[in-house]
Every structure is written in structure tokens, then in C-alpha cells.
Lab assay of single mutants.
Amino acid sequence: SPEEIKAKALDLLNKKLHRANKFGQDQADIDSLQRQINRVEKFGVDLNSKLAEELGLV
């Protein structure tokens, strides 16, 4: 269901964000992850996106 997909995506992105902060990645990478999280919260996951591929939806 779209809600489950959204939850999985947010979980994955939050893990990536945590790792980025923990290991001191570029601020641009961290900002990009934050924008992705905001986009998923607002609009859900686009099944044509790279994120959908990472989640194994495509």
C-alpha cells in the first residue's frame, strides 16, 4: 500500500541521514537527504525514482 511504501522510504532515508551526520558527509548531501524526506512526507514515493529502485519496488 502507499502508506507502507512511504513508511519504508522514510525509514531508509532517515537511516541515510543519520549515517551522513555520524560520518560527517558534505552539508550538501545532508541537505539533499532532508529534501528527499520532506518530498516523501508530502507526496509519497514516485515509482519511477531511484528511491523506488532502492526499495525494490521497480
Rank of each mutant, 00 (worst) to 15 (best):
P2H: 14
P2R: 11
P2E: 11
E3C: 10
E3I: 07
E3A: 11
E3P: 05
E3T: 06
E3W: 06
E3S: 08
I5Q: 05
I5N: 09
I5F: 10
K6N: 04
K6S: 04
K6P: 01
A7Y: 10
A7Q: 13
A7F: 11
A7M: 12
A7S: 10
K8L: 13
K8F: 06
K8R: 13
A9C: 07
A9Q: 01
L10T: 01
L10G: 00
L10F: 02
L10Y: 01
D11L: 10
L13W: 00
L13Y: 00
L13M: 02
N14S: 08
N14E: 08
N14T: 10
K15S: 09
K16A: 08
K16T: 02
L17A: 02
L17G: 00
L17H: 01
L17M: 05
L17R: 01
H18I: 14
R19G: 07
R19N: 14
R19Q: 14
R19L: 15
R19K: 10
A20V: 05
A20K: 03
N21R: 14
N21Q: 15
N21D: 04
N21M: 15
N21W: 12
K22C: 13
K22I: 12
K22T: 12
K22R: 10
K22Y: 09
F23K: 09
G24F: 06
G24I: 04
Q25R: 13
Q25S: 14
Q25V: 14
Q25D: 10
Q25H: 12
D26I: 08
D26M: 08
D26W: 06
D26G: 10
D26Q: 10
Q27Y: 06
Q27E: 05
A28I: 10
D29L: 15
D29I: 15
D29N: 11
D29C: 15
D29V: 15
D31S: 08
S32M: 14
S32L: 14
L33D: 01
L33H: 00
L33F: 04
Q34N: 10
Q34F: 07
Q34H: 12
Q34G: 04
Q34Y: 11
R35P: 02
R35E: 15
R35C: 14
R35D: 14
R35I: 11
R35Q: 13
Q36E: 14
Q36M: 13
Q36C: 13
I37M: 03
I37W: 03
I37K: 04
I37Q: 02
I37A: 02
N38S: 12
N38W: 14
N38V: 12
R39L: 15
R39H: 15
R39I: 14
R39F: 15
R39D: 15
R39V: 09
V40E: 00
V40F: 02
V40I: 10
V40L: 07
E41W: 06
E41R: 12
K42E: 13
K42F: 05
K42Q: 13
K42T: 07
F43G: 05
F43N: 07
F43D: 07
F43Q: 05
F43S: 04
F43Y: 12
G44E: 01
G44I: 01
V45P: 02
V45F: 04
V45W: 02
V45A: 01
D46H: 06
D46E: 08
D46Q: 09
D46R: 06
D46C: 07
L47T: 06
L47N: 04
L47R: 05
L47D: 04
N48Q: 09
S49G: 07
S49H: 03
K50R: 08
K50I: 07
K50N: 08
L51D: 02
L51G: 01
L51Y: 06
A52K: 01
A52M: 08
A52C: 04
A52W: 11
A52P: 02
E53C: 10
E53I: 12
E53L: 14
E54H: 05
E54A: 05
L55R: 00
L55M: 07
L55I: 06
G56Y: 04
G56C: 05
G56W: 05
L57T: 03
L57Y: 09
L57Q: 03
L57N: 03
V58W: 10
V58Y: 11
V58T: 14
V58R: 10
V58A: 09
